[in-house]
Design a protein around this nucleic acid. Sequence first.
DNA 1: TTTCTTAGTTGACATAATCAACTCAAATAA
DNA 2: TTATTTGAGTTGATTATGTCAACTAAGAAA
Lengths: 139, 139
Amino acid sequence: MNTQLGESLHQLMHSYRNQLRIAALEAGIKLPICQIRSLKCINSIEHCNASDISNQLMLDKSQVARVLKELVNEGLISKAPCPTNHRSQRLNLTSKGEKTLLDIRTLDQHAAQTMTQNMTEKQINDFIALTSIMLSNLR
Amino acid sequence: MNTQLGESLHQLMHSYRNQLRIAALEAGIKLPICQIRSLKCINSIEHCNASDISNQLMLDKSQVARVLKELVNEGLISKAPCPTNHRSQRLNLTSKGEKTLLDIRTLDQHAAQTMTQNMTEKQINDFIALTSIMLSNLR
DNA sequence: TTTCTTAGTTGACATAATCAACTCAAATAA
DNA sequence: TTATTTGAGTTGATTATGTCAACTAAGAAA
């Protein structure tokens, strides 16, 4: 009976990513999901650096390094030296990055809305709660 | 508030895949997740063919073709002509494939068990139900 | 027969993820 | 103080996943 759990997750994930990707494309945003997630992360974490992203998104640090390089190339973020630690670099959204993030937030909300239509507030919250229980079970 | 939904999904998915992947590796099974899913699919669908897998797992048919080619090369499945449709091919597990699948099922159950520890039967069922609601919302 | 659809394959490419080896800075131990 | 270890990030190499378009061949429909 538990066997279907993984499959359900896979399918939901796939659909959700697709939804987001296509919506982004239609809105003229051609960023891969990875970059989108990173942008959101940089915005939501105070003085965010590369390893914050690595931890938060559970991505390998090498992958993060490459994503950040692309985001810099696209002019969406900038790196500033960290005053307290010269090994680390603080990541900031550029104004272009902030503008992009606004669009992304709209898309994201729309995707979430589509995904949760016909669900009660309670169901949604339950789902998020259950998800985080499972997440902590896996760590 | 809905913004975290996608992030939660991503993280859960990532953890679950990792859990499964590492467990498989430790058990000496070196198949990628994709192949594992396909094997399970072939086993569970009567007279399964490539497009069944494509539909069930929501993978592009080209991706499916390649995964199947690998599974054949590894001697885990075989292709037989479909008696009613010469364009289609029926997929079957070889005995090696069946043995591998048994191991996989153990791993899979273990992963699901780990993921759902400290959860009631009801919570698990709720989660699956909510997942399928969201899935149908996205299609 | 011609046309359209279905099942699958292949090429080319983009995105995502993993692992190991490396640099350089900082902390710590000797 | 020097030596060693740890932390932050980069790079190379490779594997895995996903997408799109063009194609063949078999069946269905016109």
